[in-house]
């Protein structure tokens, strides 16, 4: 599990459009850089980011090596009912990092 930061508003009115932000600590090595000793740093990237709200996938991003370190996504979501907003990042080795927050709809 990698270090992540997520921001979901605690409460929202039904029908409100809320901003969701998510970031993961990851080097996103693109496979073209070298260490100071001259050895190639192999590709090491997060390949998939998904956000699920009310058990429905609302965002799915496929990441490529050109994306910079610590990828940060911000998007908008329409609040319907109280429920969990779940985030998942999967890296190229299949390692999964998850985070979740509760969005309370009044």
């Amino acid at each position: 599990m990698r270090n992540t930061r997520i921001r979901v508003p605690e409460t929202a009115a039904a029908g409100d459009i809320v901003e969701i932000r998510a970031m993961i600590m990851h080097p996103m090595d693109n496979g073209f850089t070298y260490t100071t000793q001259g050895t190639l740093i192999p590709v090491d990237i997060v390949t998939d980011f998904t956000c699920t709200y009310l058990d429905e996938e609302v965002v799915h991003v496929r990441l490529e090596p050109g994306i910079s370190a610590n990828p940060y996504f911000s998007f908008r979501l329409r609040a319907l009912r109280t429920g969990k907003v779940e985030f998942a990042w999967v890296d190229q080795h299949g390692e999964k990092t998850v985070a979740e927050a509760l969005l309370t709809v009044k």
Partner: peptide, 15 residues
């Protein structure tokens, strides 16, 4: 304070 990537390290330090 959210978009600043340095905060990732500050949070890791907190852990």
């Amino acid at each position: 304070d959210f978009a600043n990537p340095g905060m990732l390290w500050v949070e890791l330090g907190g852990k």
